[in-house]
Design a protein around this nucleic acid. Structure first.
Lengths: 141, 141
DNA sequence: CTTAATTCCTACTGGAATACTAGGAATTAT
DNA sequence: ATAATTCCTAGTATTCCAGTAGGAATTAAG
């Protein structure tokens, strides 16, 4: 029941990005240094985030990344899903029909857990995080 | 962010046990057959559950397992913790001091998630599960 | 007192997932 | 042209987890 380090590092990097470069382009190298993450690793993380339309990019020299939409519309849920695939506590939840479906009585538990977790994670946006925890300009590493 | 199969199988087996043998001793072999789990695997699961005082046992011929306390006092949280160690979404939550502690601003997010998940899982007991989903005598497999 | 049934405990193995690295193609500002 | 950057795929190494194995200890029953 642990998050992947990709997920948590994505949060770390995006928080710093929201804090310091909310409206500027920032390169992988710069943000990686700032967040104490290997540039190559962060690159891979940003590859997913871009695919899922959380960030956009400009290629070439003086290129970089920026947010694809307002911080108020980027939730923790969206970020984590991009890196983890889905946030379901058991695989069977999104299967149309699992082999035990007819008799499974534990599924409702996992379903309830999933629903509450999603609600919570959707309710936390990058904007809110910056407001709550970004009051000085120290970055996370 | 997935539960281990040990955790979900523990739930499965304990649910069946609560349903059919609430006050009797039941052997690993019988319960394993019923729940469609390998006996040796279930044995290992029950080893943890016993260590954490969720079930007790009687050794020797005609021995077996039974609950260590009333079903109303056995929560999903307790069961899962026994198998998964802890339910924290990131390792650092229970560390006295993680290397990033001074500057980490994402920790509050994981903390909030953790708290809500615990609340939910603590609120679901085996007693409640049997009441809600155990109305006929079919076992789970 | 022997046997069979059972829990108890530790260790092992194979496979899957994850963390992280590598390398080079494509793009673009200067 | 060159340097800086994103883009994309593939690879490796490690860690974790599922599941197995084997035998010691205990106990009921004949």
């Amino acid at each position: 029941m642990k998050l992947s380090t990709k997920g948590t590092n994505a949060m770390l990097a995006l928080f710093n990005m929201a804090l310091i470069y909310p409206n500027k382009l920032v390169s992988i190298n710069e943000l990686a240094m700032l967040s104490n993450i290997s540039p190559k690793y962060l690159e891979q993380i940003f590859y997913s985030l871009k695919r899922d339309n959380i960030i956009t990019s400009k290629r070439g020299a003086a290129g970089g990344y920026s947010f694809a939409k307002p911080l108020s519309r980027i939730s923790v849920y969206e970020i984590l899903c991009s890196l983890e695939g889905t946030m379901e506590p058991v695989k069977c939840l999104n299967e149309v029909e699992c082999s035990r479906a007819q008799v499974c009585r534990t599924k409702p538990i996992w379903n309830a857990m999933h629903t509450k977790m999603i609600m919570l994670m959707k309710s936390i946006t990058l904007e809110q995080l910056v407001k709550d925890y970004g009051d000085n300009n120290e970055t996370i590493n």
